[in-house]
Computed example of a mutant assay.
Amino acid sequence: MFKKVTIQADQRGLLFHKGSYVKKLIPGTYHYLLWSQPTVVVLNIAKPFVVEGKDLQLFLQDEDLLRELDIVRVQDHEYVLHYEDGQFVQLLKPGVYAYWSILKKHTFLHMDIRKPELPAEVDRSILPKLTANVQSYEIASYESGFLFYDHVLQRELSPGKYYFWRGPVSVMVKTIDLRQQQMDLIGQEIMTEDKVTLRLNFVCQYKIVNPLRALEMKSFDEQIHIQLQLMLREYVGTLKLDDLLKRKEDVASFILSRLREKGEEFGVQFLSAGVKDVILPGEMKDILNTVLLAEKKAQANLITRREETASTRSLLNTAKLMDENQTLFRLKELEFLEKICEKIGSISLTGGGDLLERLSSLIGEKKAAGK
């Protein structure tokens, strides 16, 4: 009794006798006696070389078999990119792999993941297939980045996108915003020299010019915030309330000059600063409003007296002119009569005589009758 085994052109056979590997079988038909207990494993050469239940090392002693196999060993600190006929297939993790070299050309690109950054020879178009093994960081055009391996600073990163292997080395990227920024101090309670407690809203604008120095400082924003508080207290504490209200711009100039002295220490260029609001206690507001109202009333009275004096002086000058010039006096009389006539519905005159004199006498009679 015979056992018949047929191996196709796209196949190879592995002959085992009593469980032990004997040799490779090329395409063809084979007959074996059943009593010899032969076993033939048929493999498709378009697929990886894998024999279920058998370790690969068992077959690597067969020189004839090795001539048709590509063997790749991936070390513990490596990833290997596997390509078939120039097309990426998969990423190989540590281990030993075998592929039939008969139908396809296999190439392998070894990556040392102890150096996490992906080298330039890795085609970025395959990265979507490697998301489980690759992490990325992006530095915007207005940012500066800093690369850390295992919490140790490596270098500064310019704007762009960077890719790193997920492996034994911890990778971290920190970014610093280089755009103009604003810091607001809201409702800072400060006591003036004359013991008035008020609240200030203050603002300053700045840009980070030394990102590494800013990165080295713990709680960078908080430290700038505290410096602003201290400087405000230092300056406002030397002023009385009236002086502070008159010299708000001087406060900003003083704080800005002091901040610029600290600029190099913080790695920052301070651009501008200013007092937005001075908020007074309710009682102080009432007092200031009363003072302001009194000042405005005094100013109004002064203006009224000035106008009255000017009006009296004008009347005196007019009287002197009319006394010296009869024509002007007569014109003034006519103007006076015109205003009176505006109040009278009609006037009837009989007889002769000068119209102006008769009107004058008429007015005189009306005044006498009124008495």
Rank of each mutant, 00 (worst) to 15 (best):
I190Q: 00
M191K: 13
D194F: 03
K195M: 09
V196D: 11
L198F: 12
L200A: 08
N201S: 10
F202R: 06
F202Q: 09
C204R: 00
Y206A: 04
Y206K: 07
K207M: 07
I208L: 07
L212P: 04
R213Y: 01
R213A: 08
A214K: 09
A214W: 10
L215H: 01
L215I: 03
L215Y: 03
E216M: 07
M217L: 11
F220D: 00
D221I: 00
E222I: 00
Q223S: 01
Q223R: 09
H225M: 05
I226L: 11
L228Q: 06
L230P: 02
L230C: 01
M231A: 02
E234H: 04
T238P: 02
L239Q: 09
K240D: 03
L241C: 04
L241N: 04
D242E: 10
L244F: 00
K246Q: 11
E249K: 12
V251S: 04
A252E: 00
S253C: 01
S253H: 11
F254G: 01
L256S: 07
S257Y: 03
S257Q: 12
R258G: 01
R258W: 04
R260E: 08
E261Y: 02
G263M: 10
F266G: 03
G267T: 09
V268H: 03
V268S: 03
V268T: 14
V268R: 02
Q269T: 06
S272W: 11
A273V: 10
G274T: 02
G274V: 01
V275I: 14
K276S: 13
V278T: 15
I279L: 15
L280H: 14
L280Y: 14
L280Q: 03
P281H: 01
E283C: 04
E283R: 11
K285C: 07
D286W: 12
D286N: 14
L288F: 13
L288Q: 13
L288G: 05
A294S: 13
A294P: 05
A294I: 13
E295V: 08
K296M: 14
K296L: 14
K297F: 05
A298V: 07
Q299G: 03
N301S: 14
L302S: 12
I303A: 12
I303T: 09
I303F: 10
T304D: 12
R306K: 15
R306H: 14
E308W: 14
E308G: 12
E308S: 14
T309F: 15
S311L: 14
S311H: 14
L316Y: 10
N317S: 13
N317W: 03
T318A: 13
A319H: 05
A319M: 11
K320W: 02
K320E: 10
M322L: 13
M322W: 12
D323K: 11
N325S: 09
N325L: 08
T327E: 10
T327Q: 11
F329V: 01
F329Y: 10
R330M: 03
L331D: 08
K332I: 01
E333K: 04
E333F: 06
L334G: 06
L334S: 04
